[in-house]
Design a protein around this nucleic acid. Sequence first.
RNA 1: CUCGCAGGCCGUCUUAUCGCUCCCAAAAGGGAGAGGAAAGUCCGGACACCAAAGCGCAGCGUAGCGGGUAACACCCGUCGCCCCGAUUUUUCGGGGAAGGACAAGUGCAACAGAAAGUAUGUACAGGUAAGGCUGUAGUGAAAUCAGGUAAACUCUACGCGGUGCAACGCCAUGUAAACCGACAUCUGAGGGUUGCGCGUCCAAAUCGCCUCAGGGCGAGUGUCGGAGGGUAGGCGGUUAGAGCUAUCGGGCAACCGAUAUCCCAGAUAAAUGAUAAGACUCGACAGAAUCCGGCUUACAGGCCUGCAUUUUUU
Length: 133
Amino acid sequence: MTQNFPKSEKLKSRKLIGKLFAEGKSISKFPIRLVYISLSQGEGYQVGVSVSKRNFKKAVSRNRIKRLLREAYRLNKHILEENNEGAYAFMLLYQQREMPTFEQVNRKVKQLFYLFLDKETGKATVKNTTDDV
RNA sequence: CUCGCAGGCCGUCUUAUCGCUCCCAAAAGGGAGAGGAAAGUCCGGACACCAAAGCGCAGCGUAGCGGGUAACACCCGUCGCCCCGAUUUUUCGGGGAAGGACAAGUGCAACAGAAAGUAUGUACAGGUAAGGCUGUAGUGAAAUCAGGUAAACUCUACGCGGUGCAACGCCAUGUAAACCGACAUCUGAGGGUUGCGCGUCCAAAUCGCCUCAGGGCGAGUGUCGGAGGGUAGGCGGUUAGAGCUAUCGGGCAACCGAUAUCCCAGAUAAAUGAUAAGACUCGACAGAAUCCGGCUUACAGGCCUGCAUUUUUU
């Protein structure tokens, strides 16, 4: 399985991001929220991350959390690729005021991905979401 | 060695695995990758565009003298002033600041005092035709002294055009075409223009018909508004520069010159990270966004230099 995060998987189009927030569905596993939308063309995932300036005034803190979110995606994206072949745009949002550890972010992102698979594919996932500690 | 003041410097490190951005390479692979403040956006520039890049007013900035610089409100030197310490009849050392003009006008001034700016008129003495007319006393920093005050208005001198890389250039493209309304067509609708004014600039094309000869109507053209309908991508600008380091020379210094050497982030929903292990003094403030020079603010801990001070030893 691959654990890289090349440019082609980064959500870059301003237009697509606008569409994502306007029309996308969302699932939440506090303090992280996943907004996603199915893409009609292309394949694979395009992923962006975001932290509100309101919750973290300092750029250093926002950078830190965005890096943790990207890292969590990179290490867990095999969960998505093994179970779903569609094309999606993702936006991961961090919605708390406290600085998390990598382990906290990693766990929540994993849970979110399983929730996403349940919802989109309907099939039972390999792992249960609740006992994942 | 103790405590204090001033100035300067550094600002976690090492290894492994998995990643990110840029560059080199056909590939394998290799190389580089946040700060002293990257911050606040407060000054000064470079660079780019804008019409008369014109003038006046307004507005803003600066303020001993000399120097440095691309430039400055910054830096250096120096004079005067103020404060502290030593010395004592004059110096030395350290520190501080927003240091042009109150003899143009206006304003302001605690306490004391009869009276504090159009000045006032107590006591004693002197003097007069008469009178605070004169002196002294008294209050106060100051009592017609050309009073004080310009981090008060103001005045003087000098300087300042505006907007900022979301500038700007190129490619792609729909502020499109068609439609409706109003106004105008050189006696000009309207537009451009920095806060205002003046000035200046841009701006349409005429044709047909009717006529009582003034003009009228229509088409075209132009402008404004309505409605309609998008894009929001790519490349350049964009990192080799008032550049870094070293040596020598000039200068009290800021700084300048010469030679050698090095290439040192370049992202764009936006790279520089994650995990594991280890070390120690246990890691603060904090993330480049066109680029430089300053200022200001934030900052755990550590180091160095100078001055003063206390103590010990020789």
